[in-house]
């Protein structure tokens, strides 16, 4: 077990390094850079041509005169020291910009995961044990629609309903008076009021998928002979259900965390843009459009790091939960 954990850790670090390389290359793909957009805007505003040597100086000041690999080495050196470069657009160090947003992003992803499991597991068990019942039909239909509806559209529809029937504006994570207020109990309470909508929106697609998986596996398990044997020996229905079949059926659910987490972060990104949440999503979107290199790279990297951590945790959980996998590892 220990060597397995160690192996996973090494692999995770390697993954994270790969992520930093890939993100850095990807964000350098667009033609031009922040400075060329900036200069174009400057020239438009002042109506004057910027002298070539001034442009050179600016370029040197921003470190944009270096070739790609040197820029990467320079930036990665900073990253290792906990500095993530300077945001051209916000004129602030990236580190100061992203902290709170990343925490909120991660919070929403984790809460959505909890929501997903809390909803999917009981419903999945219900619809497997009550196969072909009215409730089963309803759940299946709702689940399929949940799978098919784009995240952002669900957000828009909920916004519309909230606005039309309750006159509420559900965008954002804080009421205006708390937006710039320091953290306090009241602010946290306000946050809790605003959290449900993004969590429901982000969690729905995953919930629908999980219900489908859980129902399928549980139905297979329920028809197996050990269930019949247990029943013939007089084990009570509830105990019978939870003692064996549910436990087996939960395995694919635990391993689903590996794909669930990237999709939660993805879904969270677009939902946050639609709902105007102060998470990494909208900031990433804006920084992509303004070619704010270091901010984009850092955000992309952290968003990916969050997913890689989520995936690793789910792998480890699976080993803990499923004795069969544990044995296999021990054997090899």
């Amino acid at each position: 077990m220990k060597s397995y954990l160690f192996q996973r850790l090494i692999y995770m670090i390697f993954l994270l390094w790969m992520v930093s390389v890939v993100t850095f290359i990807v964000i350098q793909l667009p033609p031009g850079d922040y400075l060329s957009t900036y200069i174009a805007r400057l020239e438009q505003n002042t109506g004057q041509q910027l002298a070539a040597e001034d442009e050179e100086a600016l370029r040197r000041q921003y470190g944009l005169d270096l070739p790609l690999h040197l820029r990467y080495v320079k930036w990665f050196g900073q990253v290792l020291q906990g500095e993530f470069g300077f945001s051209y657009d916000y004129q602030e160090p990236v580190r100061d910009l992203i902290g709170e947003r990343l925490i909120l992003t991660f919070t929403i992803a984790i809460l959505s995961a909890i929501f997903t499991y809390a909803v999917a597991i009981p419903i999945g068990i219900y619809s497997a044990t009550h196969q072909y019942s009215f409730g089963d039909y309803v759940v299946s239909i709702v689940g399929f629609i949940g799978l098919a509806i784009p995240n952002f559209m669900l957000a828009l529809i909920l916004l519309y309903i909230g606005f039309k029937s309750f006159g509420l504006n559900l965008t954002g994570l804080f009421s205006p008076e708390y937006l710039y207020a320091p953290w306090s109990l009241a602010k946290i309470g306000d946050l809790l009021l605003h959290l449900p909508i993004p969590i429901i929106v982000v969690g729905t697609a995953g919930t629908a998928g999980l219900i489908r998986v859980l129902r399928g596996t549980l139905l297979d398990e329920l028809n197996k002979q050990y269930v019949i044997t247990a029943r013939s020996k007089g084990v009570g229905e509830v105990r019978l259900l939870f003692k064996y079949p549910v436990r087996v059926a939960l395995n694919p659910i635990v391993s689903s965390l590996a794909w669930l987490f990237p999709s939660l972060i993805s879904g969270g990104t677009i939902t946050a843009i639609v709902l105007g949440l102060p998470t990494a999503g909208p900031m990433l979107y804006r920084s992509l459009l303004t070619q704010d290199t270091f901010l984009t790279a850092t955000l992309l990297m952290f968003v990916t790091i969050l997913t890689v951590i989520g995936t690793t945790v789910s792998d480890i959980l699976l080993v803990i939960v499923d004795p069969r996998i544990r044995m296999e590892r021990a054997a090899s």
């Binding site: 993954l15 790969m18 992520v19 890939v22 993100t23 990807v26 964000i27 793909l29 667009p30 033609p31 590996a258 794909w259 990237p262 999709s263 972060i265 993805s266 879904g267 990104t269 677009i270 999503g281 990433l284 979107y285 992509l288 459009l289 984009t296 955000l299 992309l300 968003v303 990916t304 997913t307 890689v308 995936t311």
Partner: peptide
């Protein structure tokens, strides 16, 4: 495994924002 563990949408956004 590497590509699967990257959240798709942010990277899609980055790539398509790169189109001239």
């Amino acid at each position: 495994e590497f590509i699967v563990s990257i959240p798709q949408l942010p990277l899609w956004m980055a790539l398509s924002a790169a189109l001239p």
